[in-house]
Computed example of a mutant assay.
Amino acid sequence: MEQVHTPHVVVVMGVAGTGKTTIGPLLAARLGVPYAEGDDFHPPANIAKMSAGVPLDDVDRLPWLDAIGAWAHSRAGLGGVVSSSALKRSYRDRLRAAAPGVVFVHLTGDRELIEDRMSHRQGHFMPTALLDSQFATLQPLAADEAGVAVDVTGGPEEISERAVTALRALEPASQPAK
Rank of each mutant, 00 (worst) to 15 (best):
A86K: 04
R111E: 14
P43N: 06
V148N: 03
V59Q: 02
G101P: 07
Q139Y: 06
R89N: 13
M126Q: 06
E115I: 12
S83H: 08
A99R: 04
N46E: 05
R162F: 02
P156Y: 14
D144F: 08
M126K: 04
T137G: 07
G79N: 11
L107A: 11
P7H: 13
V150L: 01
A129T: 15
L78S: 13
D60F: 00
A143T: 09
I23R: 03
L26N: 06
P140K: 01
V150Y: 03
W64T: 01
L138F: 02
L170I: 01
V103W: 04
K49T: 13
A45G: 14
E145Q: 11
T21Y: 13
A76F: 14
S160L: 09
Y35S: 15
Q139V: 01
P140F: 01
A169Y: 10
D116K: 09
L26D: 09
L78A: 12
G24A: 10
L113T: 11
L87P: 12
P44G: 10
T22K: 04
Q134W: 00
K20A: 15
Q175R: 05
W71S: 10
A146R: 11
L62N: 02
D151Q: 05
L95T: 00
D93H: 01
D57P: 08
S83P: 12
V12G: 12
L78W: 08
D39L: 11
H106Q: 07
A67Q: 00
L167S: 09
G77W: 15
A28H: 09
L131I: 11
A72G: 01
H8V: 04
I68Y: 02
G17M: 11
D144G: 08
D66W: 00
Y35E: 15
V148G: 03
V11Y: 12
P172M: 03
F104E: 14
T128C: 05
A97L: 05
D39A: 06
R89A: 14
K49Y: 02
P25A: 12
P156K: 06
V59T: 01
I23M: 08
S160G: 06
P127Y: 07
A98Q: 00
D151A: 06
P156M: 10
E157K: 04
A67D: 00
S83K: 06
Q3W: 12
S160P: 05
A36F: 03
S74R: 00
T6A: 12
E157Q: 11
A166K: 02
I23T: 06
A173T: 14
S133C: 07
G32Y: 14
T6K: 02
P63E: 03
A36E: 07
G19F: 15
H106G: 09
M118S: 13
R75I: 03
V9Q: 06
Y35W: 13
H8G: 04
M1R: 12
F125Y: 11
Q3E: 14
A36G: 11
V164S: 02
R89V: 15
T6M: 08
V59L: 01
P25Y: 13
A67T: 00
L138N: 06
A48S: 11
E37A: 15
H106F: 08
L31Y: 08
A45S: 15
G32T: 00
V12L: 06
G14F: 14
D93W: 00
L107G: 10
T153F: 07
T21E: 08
T165D: 09
Q175N: 10
S133F: 08
A72S: 02
A67L: 01
